[in-house]
Amino acid sequence: MKRAITATVSTVAGFGVVLGMHTATARNALSSALKRAAAPAATTVPAAPAGGGAAAGASRAAAGPPAPSTTVPGGVHSAVGTAEQYGYGVLSVKVTVDGKRITDISLANLQTAESYSQMLAQQVVPMLRQEVLSAQTARVNGVSGATYTSEAYLISAQSALDHLHVP
């Protein structure tokens, strides 16, 4: 797994949302969750280094099914990433890994006062999930598709993370 994480650092450049959401929030939230989920079960513990500035500490418990009693390289792990602050609030994502495959990504925690901002976060994470999961199964570098946009909120988001091309 070290390889995948290293690849994250060296090759994934980033993720920016053109309207509203802080650049890299979703990426940071995901990659921190991924690191925790990818770690051997015994070390998937809370209280990792803070990544969310003022928001750190809002959500950091490792969640998911009980860890296997023996530390097998495969197996299902999930973890919640560091709470990431973005323009209007704080969010964290939960990633589930089965062996080397990501099997799920969801919004673990969202703290924000306004509905506009909730809308943003609630769109970003499903999109992230879609792109990540299809990238993994079909071994693609990217996904082309019609824009996810809510006409009402004039916002959409799409994200791609190539560290998910776990070998």
């Binding site: 450049a13 079909a138 570098n141 990217g142 996904v143 082309s144 598709g145 996810y148 799409q158």
Partner: peptide, 27 residues
Amino acid sequence: AGMVNGGGDLTVFGPPPQGAAWRIGVQ
């Protein structure tokens, strides 16, 4: 090399991370 993807419309340049071509899924 790189890829920039704006809401599902993307462009790639340079050698792909693996193989001879960038593999792009169509949703």
